[in-house]
Amino acid sequence: MASLEVSGVTVSYGGNRVLDGVDLTAGPGRITGLIGPNGAGKSTLFDVVSGLRRPAAGRVSLDGRDVTRLGPARRARHGLARTFQRLELFGRLSVRDNLLVAAELGPDRRHAARAVTALLDRLGLEHLADSPAGALSTGAARLVEVGRALAVRPRLLLLDEPAAGQDGPETERFAALLRSVAADGTAVVLVEHDTGLVMDVCDEVHVLDLGKVIAAGTPAQVSRDAAVLAAYLGDA
């Protein structure tokens, strides 16, 4: 059964159709990439899936259960976690407390403190554990957001540009982290502008353009798709 099933999601904003009948599935242990030009509707889709925005039409299911009418907190309790493109850290809390708030909201709150320490170690953030999250550089802040989402032990993880602001070696390490998260059985949906990373780690890639999915398939298939080439490079 798919961890996430989005079907026919439509969102209109001020007369514009930001999303137009979008379908998307993500399975456990797999990394699904979502790419497309700026303004294609990727972040809006994440808002719909995580319950921050009501779609005008369509449905969202988690593990086969229709959650379209549930609020964000209820969906989180069904095992969904996400990061935000425009960072939404708890700026006045330390990095450790950011993760701790999440872990204590997760399924295993009794061992939250120990789990957070382990997670900080896994992400290589021990040295920042006591810094206030509001004072981090963009790259580190994005990593903390990923860590905070992981701290609730999600079954479905939505990552919105987690690698922006990282340099080459950092991206390599991040790719390894993503693979290990998927190997634990988590379904990952990755929105990312670093196409190299997407093509590298994803099992499947969906391409969104002007609110519609214009292509889906393996990275190899997508990179040869005529419609994708046209969307990115123009039809010549």
Binding site: S50, G51, L52, G71, P72, A73, R75, A76, R77, L80, A81, R82, F84, E88, L89, F90, G91, R92, L93, D97, N98, L100, V101, A102, E104, L105, G106, R148, A149, V152
Partner: peptide
């Protein structure tokens, strides 16, 4: 911690299940 988190980002707090 939850109160501070709630103030800093309601959206993040809610999507974590708070």
């Amino acid at each position: 911690r939850r109160l501070v988190a709630l103030r800093d980002s309601e959206a993040a707090y809610a999507t974590l299940g708070g």
